[in-house]
Design a protein around this nucleic acid. Structure first.
Lengths: 333, 333
DNA sequence: CTGAAAGCGCTTACAG
DNA sequence: CTGAAAGCGCTTACAG
C-alpha cells in the first residue's frame, strides 16, 4: 500500500498542499469550510503525516530521548512510565537508549544528535566523568535540553535535575532508627560510587556523628547473587541493631540473612529500605522504607523538559526537589 | 551551533555530496584516498548525519517500535533489555510506546506509520480484539513487519511470535506437583483473559484431568494489593497442598498468606511461580518456578524481526518456541 | 485566507 | 569511481 501524501489530500480537497499543512497543524488559520474539506479528504485517504519530512522541514522532531543504563531496575520502569504518559500527552514520542558504557558514549551522542531529539531525559544513577563530559557537549555544543531524573550529577555544570533530597532522606532515616533506640546502625550501600548513594551516605554519617555513634558501612555490589558474601561477612563481624539499605532489594537481602541467623525483626534489629519498590510488598516482615515518588519524578521531569524545549535559550540549571517520606511497615518498631 | 551537513563535508573534502554519502554508507564504492579525505573532513567537522533527511530520502528509518502496555512488570524490562542490545548491534533505534488502551489504538497506529518504523515488537500479554485488528492493519495494510514477544495472539492471523510453550509448561509444572504426591493443586491465575494465562490454565487442566484430580482455580487481579482478599477467601474455602501462580508475584502473595495461616512450606504445601523474575530471589523460602528465558526471547524477537525486515514480502506467520525449564528451589519438595 | 515556490539534508538512478 | 540532478514529503516566509 502506498501511503497518501499531503499532495494526495490537496488534490482530493482541491486546495494547495500548503493549505493542507495549515489545516492539519494550525486549524485556526484556515477557513472552516476549507478545513472541513481537508479533514474529510485526509480521513478518506487515511492520511498519516510523514514524521521524517516533517522533522526535516520544521527542524523539530517531537521526539525525546530516554537514556537509561539498567532498565531492569524496579524503579526505572516506573519512572519511564511517568515520563511516557506525560510525553504522549504532549505528543512527544520516546526514543529509548540503554547503552551508556563509556566506550559507547560517542555513539550515543551521535545518535541523539542525528535523531534531532528535542530533549533528553537521563536516568542513570551512576554518572561517570565521561558521561558528564558527554552531557555537557549535548547541552553546550548541541543546545539540546537535558533533565536528569532521580539522580544528580557531581559535575560543576549543575544540570537541571528532578529528584528527592537524598542526603536529607539518609539523615532522617538514620535519625528515625536512633529514635527507636538503635545504637549500632549499619548502612549497606553500593561499591560503585553513585552520587545518589554518596548523598544517602552523607546523610547517614551526619546523623551518626550528631549522636556520637559509630559509623558502620558495608559496601556491596547491587547484584543479588554476589551480595551474599559481603553481607554475611559483615554481619558476622559486626553486632548491629539497625539496618539501612540504599535500595529495597539490598535491604531485603540483609533482612533475610538476619532472619536466617536467628535475629528477630524488628525486636532485635530494625531494617529500612530505600525507594518503596514493589519488592517491599513481597518481603516478610513487610519492609519499612523511604518512599520516593518515582512515577512523579518521571512525570515531572518530562514536564520540566517540555518547558525547557519551548525556551529559546537553555538554562539547564538547578535542582527540583520532590518530597520523600518515611514509611514504617513491619521491619521497624 | 549549526550542525555540519553533507555539503559542508563535501566542500571541505573537495568532492560532491554524493561521494560523501557513498564514502559514509558504502565505503567500498569509493576510492580509498577519496574515502580517507571524506572521513577526515567528516571527523573534523563533527559531522552527524541527519536521520530525518536520511529516512525521507531512503524510505528506511532504521527504527523499530517496541509496544508494551505495562512497563513496570518485572519481565518486561528484561525483555526490552534483550531487544535493545540486539537492536543497537544492528544499528536500529528503539521507539517506545506504552499506551495500548483500546481508545488509543488509532493514535498508536498513526504513530507507527508516521514514524515509518521498519518493524514492530509487541510485548502485551493481553491482546484484545481491537488490538488484533490494529495489528492486522499494521501488517496487511501497511506492510510493517511484526513480532510478538513472549505472548501469542488468539487471532487466526497467526502472527509471528517468539515465546515458550505455555501450555506445555503449565502441564509440566502441574505434573511435577502431582509427582511430589500433591492431590489438591490450585492454580492462581488472572481475572483478565490473557492468552498466555489461558494456555497455562489449559496445561494445568490437562494434567489434572489426566490424573483424575479436581480443578481448583482462583482468579485474582494481578494487582498486589487487591489480590489479598481473593487469595484469602480462596484459601479459607479450599484445602490445598499445591499452588501454581501464573506469575511469581502472585505465587509469592499466596506463599506469604499460607505462611501467615501457619502452613509449612514445603512440608504442607508446595508452591510454584512462573517466569523466574528476581522476585524469586527475595522470597522466603526461595520460590520454585518455571524459568522463562526472557532476555533471550527479547533478543531472539529482535533478531527475527531484522530478518523479516530484510525480506521483500512479509510472511509474518508462525510461532518460535524457546525452551523453558522447571527450577526447584525451596517451596517445593 | 490561500497558493507558488524554495528549502530542509539526505539518497540514488543515470551518465560519464 | 565520481558528479549533476531529481526527488523524498513536508513547512513556511512571501505575496496576493
Amino acid at each position: 500500500m502506498n501511503k497518501a501524501t499531503i499532495y494526495d489530500v490537496a488534490a482530493l480537497a482541491r486546495v494547495s498542499n500548503a493549505t493542507v499543512s495549515r489545516a492539519l497543524n494550525e486549524p485556526d488559520k484556515v477557513k472552516p469550510e476549507t478545513r472541513d474539506k481537508v479533514l474529510k479528504a485526509a480521513k478518506e485517504l487515511g492520511y498519516k503525516a510523514n514524521a521524517f519530512a516533517k522533522g526535516l522541514a520544521s527542524n523539530k522532531s517531537t521526539e525525546v530521548a530516554v537514556v537509561v543504563s539498567d532498565l531492569s531496575r524496579a524503579s526505572v520502569a516506573e519512572m519511564v512510565k511517568g515520563i511516557s504518559e506525560v510525553a504522549s500527552h504532549y505528543n512527544y514520542s520516546i526514543l529509548l537508549f540503554t547503552d551508556t558504557s563509556d566506550d559507547k558514549l560517542p555513539e550515543l551522542l551521535t545518535n541523539l544528535v542525528s535523531h534531532s531529539v528535542d530533549g533528553v531525559l537521563y536516568l542513570n544513577d551512576e554518572i561517570t566523568q565521561k558521561q558528564n563530559q558527554m552531557l555537557e557537549d549535548l547541552v553546550d555544543k548541541f543546545q539540546i535540553p537535558l533533565v536528569l531524573c532521580n539522580t544528580v550529577s557531581n559535575s560543576d555544570h549543575n544540570f537541571l535535575s528532578v529528584a528527592i533530597d537524598f542526603e536529607k532522606a539518609g539523615y532522617e532515616v538514620t535519625k528515625s532508627l536512633i529514635q527507636e533506640g538503635r545504637n549500632n546502625i549499619a548502612l549497606f550501600t553500593t561499591t560503585k560510587r553513585f552520587p545518589v548513594n554518596e548523598l544517602k551516605e552523607a546523610g547517614y554519617k551526619k546523623a551518626i556523628k550528631e549522636y556520637g555513634l559509630k559509623e558502620l558501612i558495608c559496601y556491596t555490589t547491587g547484584n543479588l547473587d554476589s551480595n551474599k558474601n559481603d553481607i554475611d561477612t559483615f554481619l558476622n563481624e559486626n553486632d548491629i541493631d539497625g539496618v539501612i539499605g540504599v535500595r529495597d532489594s539490598i535491604a531485603i537481602a540483609v533482612l533475610n540473612t538476619l532472619i536466617a541467623k536467628g535475629r528477630r525483626i524488628p525486636e532485635d534489629v530494625s531494617v529500612f529500605g530505600f525507594q518503596n519498590t514493589r519488592y517491599t510488598q513481597l518481603s516478610r516482615p513487610l519492609l519499612s522504607t523511604i518512599n520516593i515518588p518515582i512515577y512523579e519524578i518521571g512525570a515531572r521531569s518530562m514536564r520540566v523538559l517540555t518547558t525547557e524545549m519551548m525556551k529559546e535559550e537553555q538554562e539547564h540549571k538547578g535542582l527540583i526537589t520532590l518530597e520523600h517520606s518515611i514509611i514504617k511497615r513491619l521491619t521497624t518498631k
